[in-house]
């Protein structure tokens, strides 16, 4: 994997028209993880959504573009009516990547592959959602509280997968409150809280 570094230069983001972060400048080289920290409402999710290209930054530059980025959100888009294998095969097809066997094995889902996703436990469903990341074939992973409802074994598997991804020259930006056992560059968002609030009504149309 030959990834360009993840570079944020003076990025400002808004949630619901209200600026939450400004001046976020950070660089993560291939093989490194960026650990986003900050209290609830600090703008972790908003920043990740902005890097994923789901919303535009109100200022600053982000590289690389959204086509290099895989977004792992709270809601993982898995359909309860489809089996584990069908869910993963759909995303593998959308991303034009190969088989799903590796992704199933990496998260210990192989023996659940014919189970309908709605019958999985919360932790198993979470593992399924994370397995999708492996199918995107993209170098930059954005992970929003990835270990919610995972047990110790699940967190261990997840740590292994992320370390393997970094070992292949990938990049991960992880918003988390727990220690994942992954060495990374910490980024405390409390230091970038937006101070200036522009004139009322200006923002909704400027983004």
């Amino acid at each position: 994997m030959n990834a360009p570094p993840l570079v944020l230069d003076g990025v400002a983001v808004a949630r619901g028209g209200v600026p939450v972060l400004e001046g976020v400048t950070v660089r993560a080289d291939p093989g490194t993880a960026l650990i986003l920290r900050g209290p609830n409402g600090a703008g972790k999710t908003t920043l990740l959504r902005t890097i994923a290209g789901l919303q535009a930054p109100i200022a600053g530059e982000i590289a690389p573009g959204p086509d290099q980025v895989a977004y792992g959100a709270h809601a993982d888009g898995m359909k309860g009516g489809l089996t584990v294998a069908e869910n993963l095969a759909f995303w593998a097809g959308i991303h034009g990547t190969g088989g799903i066997g590796e992704a199933l094995d990496a998260f210990g889902l192989a023996r659940l592959s014919e189970r309908a996703a709605q019958h999985l436990s919360a932790g198993q469903a979470r593992r399924l959602g994370l397995a999708r990341l492996l199918l995107t074939g993209r170098p930059v992973w954005l992970l929003d509280e990835p270990t919610v409802s995972l047990d110790a074994e699940g967190v261990g598997l997840f740590g292994q997968v992320v370390r393997a991804h970094l070992g292949r020259g990938g990049i991960a930006a992880i918003a988390t409150h727990v220690d994942l056992g992954i060495a990374g560059v910490p980024l405390d968002l409390a230091g970038f809280r937006a101070r200036s609030v522009p004139a009322e009504g200006a923002l909704a149309w400027d983004v």
């Binding site: 789901l54 809601a75 993982d76 888009g77 359909k79």
Partner: peptide, 9 residues
């Protein structure tokens, strides 16, 4: 369920 966000990206 978030699938729309993922399809958009």
């Amino acid at each position: 369920d978030g699938a729309l966000d993922l399809l958009a990206t």
